[in-house]
């Protein structure tokens, strides 16, 4: 459950966040600063506040929730809510890293690709994405770790319904009063997952250097 929702949320963040980060890194437009600030907002908000905010937006009788429930979609206290909460909380971690990664790509290379006849989409997939892959991978791993551990926003927005919206961190919280050993076991699982992610991060520079033309293993939008 926890893995599935995290994976879906993470995929959504990658799919939307990668092109968005590219545009934010490359274009200078009025309001860019504001957008960057809004993106970082979840970083400084207590997760509980994020949960309240999501509930206020998507709750059954609220702004967006009302429209959605009219369409027969309920968000609050479902797996969809977990996914939204996780995506909301982890997205700034990915976006910040991804914008920084794209900013390190030499703009002249992108210009060169254009003069060689590549349309913007081809420049993105063939040049920008592979060159930013290292930074994107690192940002993605950090965001994934943050998403897996998400607690505050989830418990408020999605509740802790066992088998439905109870993620691993929520399970730890639920178990540690009843069955401390089980909570400890789940905790151990997190340590292993975290260690694996950190190890992966250390290895990232290694595989981007030795990579061939398509090293972007996370490539959400590559068809190959």
């Amino acid at each position: 459950m926890s893995l599935k929702t995290s994976a879906i949320a993470h995929l959504a963040v990658l799919l939307v966040g990668t092109p968005a980060a590219y545009v934010l890194a490359r274009r200078r437009f009025p309001g860019r600063g504001l957008v960057l600030t809004l993106i970082e907002l979840p970083l400084v908000l207590p997760p509980a506040v994020a949960g309240i905010a999501l509930l206020a937006a998507f709750g059954r009788y609220q702004l967006l929730g009302g429209t959605l429930s009219a369409l027969g979609i309920t968000v609050g206290f479902t797996q969809l809510a977990v996914i939204l909460a996780v995506a909301f909380v982890e997205s700034p971690f990915y976006l910040r890293g991804a914008v920084a990664a794209f900013e390190t790509v030499d703009g002249t290379l992108l210009d060169a690709a254009r003069t060689l006849g590549a349309a913007p989409a081809r420049v993105f997939f063939r040049i920008a994405l592979p060159l930013a892959a290292g930074g994107l991978g690192a940002a993605s791993a950090l965001a994934l770790a943050r998403g897996l551990g998400e607690f505050g926003a989830t418990i408020i927005f999605a509740g802790s319904l066992q088998g439905v919206t109870q993620t691993l961190p929520l399970a730890i919280y639920a178990q540690f009063e009843q069955d401390f050993d089980l909570a400890l076991a789940i905790g151990a699982l997190f340590v292993v997952l975290g260690a694996a992610l950190l190890l992966f991060l250390k290895l990232v520079p290694g595989w981007t250097r030795s990579s061939s033309s398509s090293p972007f293993r996370f490539a959400p939008s590559r068809s190959s």
């Binding site: 210009d111 254009r114 003069t115």
Partner: peptide, 19 residues
């Protein structure tokens, strides 16, 4: 657009794709 113009551009420092 740049990709529609048939101009061969050799950039300063050459801007070869490192990957």
């Amino acid at each position: 657009r740049p990709e529609e113009r048939s101009a061969g551009f050799v950039f300063q420092e050459y801007a070869l794709f490192p990957h």
